[in-house]
């Protein structure tokens, strides 16, 4: 390309740099629409992190109890709901007993909704509230409640479930007396990552009960040090981990669709980064705000 060609390219890049932000938003909207409507049909191959989590749950025997601590709210639903759904599907196939508690006030209702939808093909769970599964909901000072749960689980949750119904009326309560390896076999923390508080609380306070962290993509690097030391038994990283989990279950669902769409998004952002930096290089005197 001659000097006139370079000058023209630089002028185009400069013009791009002056684009109204709303045009950039429109481009994002179009990219997201394409990602949703025509996700690239890329295969999803499970990686070792997700495989480890899957195998831990596969080792459960019928009737083994699993504790699920929900530490996310509406903000992480799109990423963690599909992951929770996939995990619940596997647990129901393993005939596990499921006890859900929440670290956020809306988490109890969110988990309950995901559970009821996932149980649609499992009548024993759909009709088995209080027998196969239970939702304890949220309590103030959730970290204190977690330690109290290691001594007396029903008492730590004030003796009522998510809906405020007395736990004494459910047969399951008699079986799940404390959050210890005596009564539970495995635990999950679904962590939004507000300073990875839930995961830190769990690894600090509960001993002997292996824990799998379902993390949002942003938090996946943050929890790796704990996986490396064995404080976390396994992790399901982000929407990709959820998609891998669906592949392992042989039931591609919402996570797989979103994961495939994210490939398009990654290319789009990469393009913007390249254009932005090329524009800055072509116009070095311009101060960026």
């Amino acid at each position: 390309m001659g000097s006139r060609g370079w000058a023209r390219a630089a002028a185009v890049l400069r013009a791009f740099g002056r684009l109204d932000r709303r045009l950039v938003y429109l481009a994002a909207l179009l990219c997201a629409s394409a990602a949703v409507l025509w996700p690239p049909p890329l295969p999803v191959r499970p990686r070792p992190d997700t495989l480890a989590a899957y195998r831990l749950a596969q080792a459960l025997r019928p009737g083994n109890a699993v504790f699920i601590w929900i530490d996310y709210g509406f903000g992480a639903q799109e990423e963690l709901d599909p992951m929770l759904r996939a995990v619940l599907l596997q647990l129901m196939r393993r005939d596990a007993v499921i006890c859900i508690a929440s670290r956020s006030i809306e988490g109890g209702q969110i988990a309950e909704t995901v559970m009821r939808r996932a149980a649609a093909g499992h009548p024993a769970y759909l009709e088995g509230y209080g027998v196969r599964w239970i939702d304890l909901g949220y309590r103030p000072a959730p970290d204190v409640a977690l330690r109290a749960a290691t001594v007396n689980l029903p008492a730590a949750y004030n003796g009522v479930d998510q809906a405020g119904l007395p736990l004494a009326r459910f047969p399951l309560t008699a079986r799940l007396r404390a959050l210890t390896p005596e009564f539970f076999r495995l635990a999950y923390v679904f962590d939004l990552g507000d300073g990875y508080a839930a995961m830190m609380t769990y690894v600090s306070q509960v001993t002997g009960l292996p824990m799998i962290v379902g993390a949002i993509s942003m938090e996946a690097p943050v929890i790796q040090p704990f996986v490396a030391t064995g404080q976390i038994a396994a992790t399901i990283p982000g929407i990709r981990g959820a998609a891998e989990y669906e592949t392992l279950l042989g039931a591609p669902g919402p996570a797989t669709a979103l994961d495939r769409g994210s490939a398009l998004v990654a290319v789009f952002i990469l393009l913007l980064l390249a254009l932005g930096n090329a524009g800055a290089a072509a116009n070095p005197e311009r101060q960026e705000g």
Partner: peptide, 10 residues
């Protein structure tokens, strides 16, 4: 980026 876009895609 992936997390925020997953929410948006959802």
């Amino acid at each position: 980026v992936l997390y925020r876009y997953t929410i948006f895609l959802g």
